[in-house]
Amino acid sequence: MNNYKKYFKKTRTGFESCSKPEKKDVGAKKQAVVQGKCPPLKQGDQADVTQADFGAFPLEVEGNVLHVPVIHAAVPLAEIELTANLEAKITLPTPAKEIKNIRKNVFLTQCKAVPSLSGTNFVSLFITGFIHKNIQYADGSGYIRDYEVDVPFSCNQTIELANLRDPALTSLKNTVLERRELAQSKHSADQCQYSQVNFEVFNEPIECKLLATFINEVDILKKYDKRGHFNKITEKMELLLFLKLLQVQQVALNDRRDHCETRNQSVMERIQQLRDGIE
């Protein structure tokens, strides 16, 4: 009787057959969604390449003709060598019989160039960093132990530049300048209206790039015990840092002032004019 109800339904005139409801094709729907995206390329087997020859042909180097012959690029301000003498005392975690190798790497955590008040051809350089040392030593047991330690250093120095930096324009700490008007009585300021001027001037920062480092080192072993083991190392190091200072500037490829009698104001000149007018 239950199967009978599945395939027939009762009406006023009697029983009528009803078709079995079709199942939704979930797979077709999923397939339609997948077909909406580009399928990934099937990776094939790789052949063994025995030889691949390439040819190089020089081509003419061409460039755009600038209506205003200037470029906006990083300008090297100075390439300098800094020398520092360091002395560090290191205590090994376990007694050592012999130092096998000491690997050293220099890391700068700060290299900040601040425009100096001495002039546009000077900057004050502030450097902090550390020397990461990986000490490998034998403790007499037949095994090589590994110990890592950092030796910090800092340096403050005034540097003379080979190329001039851009003049640093300053902003006021409170950059709101108010303009008040007299009231109609001419005896006080008008309390119902006022105006103000806000300004900020942005300067290109001077970037610092580490080019190379050299470490000249002498290790003095101390605190020997009766078995000839030690756990103290005094290091005397001469550290050389080679740095390049860069600043993004607008550089003229030629002197445009020689080719034209009249010249418009530059951005920096216009900013300075506005500053002079409101200060």
Rank of each mutant, 00 (worst) to 15 (best):
P76T: 05
N85M: 12
T50S: 03
P58E: 10
L59Y: 11
D48G: 13
P69E: 00
D53Y: 15
K89F: 13
L82D: 08
E60S: 13
K89D: 06
E62G: 06
I71S: 03
H72P: 00
F54K: 09
A84Y: 14
D53P: 13
Q51W: 14
A56R: 04
E87C: 12
E60F: 09
A56S: 09
E79H: 08
P76S: 06
E62D: 07
D53H: 15
A88M: 12
D53S: 15
G55I: 08
G63M: 05
L59Q: 12
K89N: 04
N64D: 08
H67N: 02
N85C: 12
N64I: 02
V75F: 08
E87F: 07
F54L: 10
H67P: 00
E81N: 10
D53L: 15
L66Y: 04
H67D: 04
A88W: 12
A56G: 07
A88P: 12
I80Q: 06
H72T: 00
D48T: 15
V70E: 10
I71Y: 01
L82P: 11
P76K: 04
H67L: 02
H67Y: 00
V61Q: 10
A73V: 02
E87N: 08
N64C: 04
E81P: 03
D53Q: 15
A56C: 09
Q51S: 14
V68N: 07
A84L: 15
L86D: 11
F57Y: 14
N85F: 12
P69D: 01
E62N: 09
G63Q: 11
E81L: 07
L59E: 14
V70W: 02
L66G: 05
D53F: 15
F57E: 14
L59I: 11
E60R: 15
V68D: 04
G63C: 03
P69Q: 01
A88G: 14
A52M: 09
V61C: 06
P69S: 01
L86I: 08
A56Y: 01
E79D: 11
V75P: 02
G63F: 03
Q51M: 14
E79I: 07
E81Y: 05
V61S: 08
F54Q: 09
V70C: 06
D48S: 14
D53K: 15
L77P: 01
E79F: 05
A73P: 00
F54P: 06
I80Y: 05
A88L: 13
V61L: 07
A84I: 15
L66E: 06
P76C: 06
A78N: 03
V65D: 13
L86N: 09
A52Y: 09
T83A: 05
V70P: 00
N64M: 06
D48I: 14
A74I: 03
A88H: 14
L59G: 11
G55W: 05
L82S: 10
G55V: 11
I71F: 03
V61G: 04
